[in-house]
Amino acid sequence: MPTANPHSSLYLYGIVAAPGPRHLSVVGLDKQPVQVHGLGSLAFLYSQARQERYLASRANLLAHEAVLEKVMNEGHRALLPLQFGLVVSGWEQVEQDLVQPRLADLLALLERLEGKREVGVKVFWDPEQELKLGLEENPALKARRDEMAGAPLGLDAVVEIGRALEQLLEQRRQRIAQTFTAALSPLASDRVEGDLLTENMAYNGSFLINWEDEPVFAQKVEELDQTFQGRLRIRYNNFTAPYNFVKL
């Protein structure tokens, strides 16, 4: 198994159960070959670091992710991804700072991920369209808004109608989120909801599913798309390193 020069810095990608991949042909950051180093019952994926600090550019982030995905695709599916940009001085630092204090936790996470994969569902909507649909379903609120459209309004009235419209829109967003959660959660062993990154994002969920169940999950996502009759844009990522389910 290849080992690093003890005097050079190392860039770490992830952790698998020892002994790890025996014949890797993967290129990582700085076009450096990815290697494997065993520390007891763990094996670390690494390459020689050519920089002290790595910019979180799109190219670098994709290179980091590509290493993890290729290793998983080659059969090492239980993989703990490490955060982007992790550069260490040597294996002694890794042993002292990570392995010794957290070994039991790391082994438990590897066991939990055995036979699992992370998939992600992001749902985008058109808030203006949803508000219009919501008002059609709520004629009393629509009438209030229409009455105010051409009339001079005081601050209190403006605030009141604004809050009512915001509440209506949030209720519709929650209804969308609950629909996706109710349909997809039974197919997963765990679920994490992420932040809504833009005002056009209505739902952001990650699911931990059995590796072989992905086609069934994908079909359910397709059925949800049909349920909403094209009102939503769904971005489905059917394979990613399980960042959302390995946090210590």
Rank of each mutant, 00 (worst) to 15 (best):
Q48T: 15
Q167S: 15
L80Y: 12
F245W: 07
L24F: 04
A183Y: 02
V159P: 00
V216I: 13
G85E: 03
L39S: 08
G150Q: 11
E199D: 13
T181P: 03
V159W: 12
L196I: 04
D213K: 09
A218D: 03
D105N: 09
A183L: 04
P81V: 06
V121S: 02
A56M: 08
P6M: 00
Q129S: 04
S185Y: 10
V36E: 00
K247Y: 10
A202C: 05
R163N: 10
T227V: 14
T198I: 05
Q100I: 12
L187W: 10
N204W: 00
W125I: 00
E118L: 07
R112L: 14
L196F: 01
Q226S: 13
N210T: 08
Y11A: 00
F124N: 03
F180L: 09
P127N: 03
Q219W: 12
P139H: 00
A63Y: 01
L208K: 06
G120R: 14
R50L: 15
R231F: 01
T181S: 14
R191D: 12
G40H: 04
R235I: 15
L80C: 05
G38I: 06
N200E: 10
R175N: 14
G134C: 07
Q178L: 02
D146G: 13
L29F: 06
V27H: 10
A143I: 13
K247G: 13
E118G: 08
M1E: 04
G230M: 09
G205P: 10
L45R: 02
P242G: 01
V119Y: 06
R175L: 10
R172E: 00
D190I: 02
H76A: 09
E52Q: 14
A149E: 15
K70C: 02
L110K: 12
L197P: 12
E130P: 01
T3M: 04
D97W: 08
S41H: 14
L224R: 12
Q35D: 13
N244W: 07
P127H: 08
L131Y: 03
Q35F: 14
L107W: 01
R191A: 15
A241N: 01
Y11I: 01
R172G: 00
A157Y: 05
L184F: 06
E223H: 07
R233F: 09
L107D: 01
D30R: 11
K142C: 00
M72F: 01
L232D: 00
P101F: 01
Y11E: 03
P127V: 08
N204M: 05
V192F: 14
I209K: 07
T198G: 02
G75Q: 12
L208W: 01
T227D: 10
L24Q: 05
L107C: 06
G162P: 03
R235G: 08
D213Y: 08
R22H: 14
A143H: 15
G120Y: 07
E52N: 12
L113A: 12
L82R: 08
E111V: 14
